[in-house]
Design a protein around this nucleic acid. Structure first.
Lengths: 225, 225
DNA sequence: CCGACCAATATGCGAGCGATATACCGCGGG
DNA sequence: CCCGCGGTATATCGCTCGCATATTGGTCGG
């Protein structure tokens, strides 16, 4: 099945610098587990694979290190950050409060354009979207990002973007397991309805449930490994 | 006048890289308003003043740009980020929820070593510390940082550290104005007592009041300019 | 007066050099 | 014979330096 939504992410902005290019491509690889957690990051290899010089790669890795996606040890090497239950808990701890607050703000500050986006997304959800997990992941991503935008707070947006990528990698980890997504869908619809209704408390609570529910699902799969 | 506490910041860790060194020193300059908001950042000048090469400076500026302390426009120049009421509101919006949650976690996870730090800080507060604003700023900084540590969440800690620096610059802006610090002191004591008592709800609420109160004070001075 | 070209400036990127920490290997002691 | 230790080899990294490039502001010509 074709995934038209995919294009949104794959389309590259040609005007971005090589540093940015390197950062985005390496991040994509790490988040999608194309580069395994714990594995070494070979700078020379990346250089030839991405056809990019050393400086941009280095800058990208520094940026990824600050975002906790890689860990650099001087004169020893750079490694993809390992995943563990503790980090999952710590990340979720922050995400719960931030995402919930973003949802509240989105409900409070909803503008016309945002309203249209959310109604569109809600329609997709109500028409029973594909059961393909990757498609659902994209959808979830769109919903969250739209909420960040609707919250009208650039600081919050960039911080949440960072945490979302960390969480996204965890989701990729459990992709082929049977995680219950039925209730996640319900949560999403409830969340969107609350935002569209301008009900701040309900939006906040819905998001809180959604993120904690997400953590519970990931945790279940993570502990049995 | 002598500020003995100042030495805490000036003492440099010799083992840190030049990038780190440049980052910290430039950040200090920006936060303390030694480099004025809106002014251009001259790379060559920094290079000779800090006696540091071009690459470390560049890396430091990139990092500062991601933290919203400078803004880089390709082939045009780098500028110290301007301050305005909108940003103050946006930053506070995030800080309120994060700091409050950190206070809650600190109250929940308080360990022996942390307890000692907090009691020491509380004692300083109760003995009526200096009325020197810079001294009080240092104290406030210590309290917040200690809470970040006590929250036992490295992700939360680094995120809050970033937002704290943004706020700190705003504080510097109003340094020589007559901001009421009496109630800030009361807030601090109440906050520390709540944490030491392990009262999560009270700690969270105290911190919430403290941060919103901080914003109100800054705002008052900021609007009358 | 307006438009286009040109010099100046600042950045993006690439390659290399010296430094440093690790790993391996051979040697000596137990 | 095994274990520990020291020296050398190697790989990676941080940093310096130089070239290519893009944007700006001013100036010259129409």
């Amino acid at each position: 099945m074709a995934t038209p939504v995919m294009a949104l992410v794959e389309t590259a902005d040609p005007a971005r610098s090589q540093s940015e290019e390197a950062y985005l491509r390496i991040r994509e690889r790490i988040v999608s587990l194309d580069m395994r957690p714990g594995s070494v990051v070979n700078e020379g290899r990346l250089r030839e694979e991405l056809k990019i010089g050393r400086t941009p790669i280095r800058e990208a890795l520094q940026r990824l290190a600050r975002e906790n996606l890689v860990r650099s040890i001087p004169h020893r090497g750079t490694f993809v950050t390992d995943v563990n239950i503790t980090d999952l808990a710590r990340i979720t701890e922050v995400r719960v409060v931030l995402e919930a607050h973003a949802a509240r703000l989105a409900a409070e500050r909803l503008s016309g354009a945002d309203r249209k986006c959310f109604t569109d997304l809600l329609q997709v959800l109500e028409h029973g979207p594909s059961v393909d997990q990757r498609e659902l992941m994209r959808l979830d991503q769109q919903i969250h990002r739209q909420i960040y935008i609707a919250a009208r707070n650039p600081f919050l947006e960039s911080t949440l973007e960072r945490y979302f990528n960390l969480s996204l990698r965890l989701w990729y980890l459990v992709l082929d397991r049977d995680v219950s997504l039925r209730e996640a869908l319900e949560e999403h619809m409830e969340l969107l309805r609350a935002i569209l209704a301008g009900d701040q408390d309900r939006a906040e609570q819905s998001m809180r449930r959604h993120v904690t529910g997400f953590e519970r699902e990931i945790r279940k799969v993570l502990v049995e490994r």
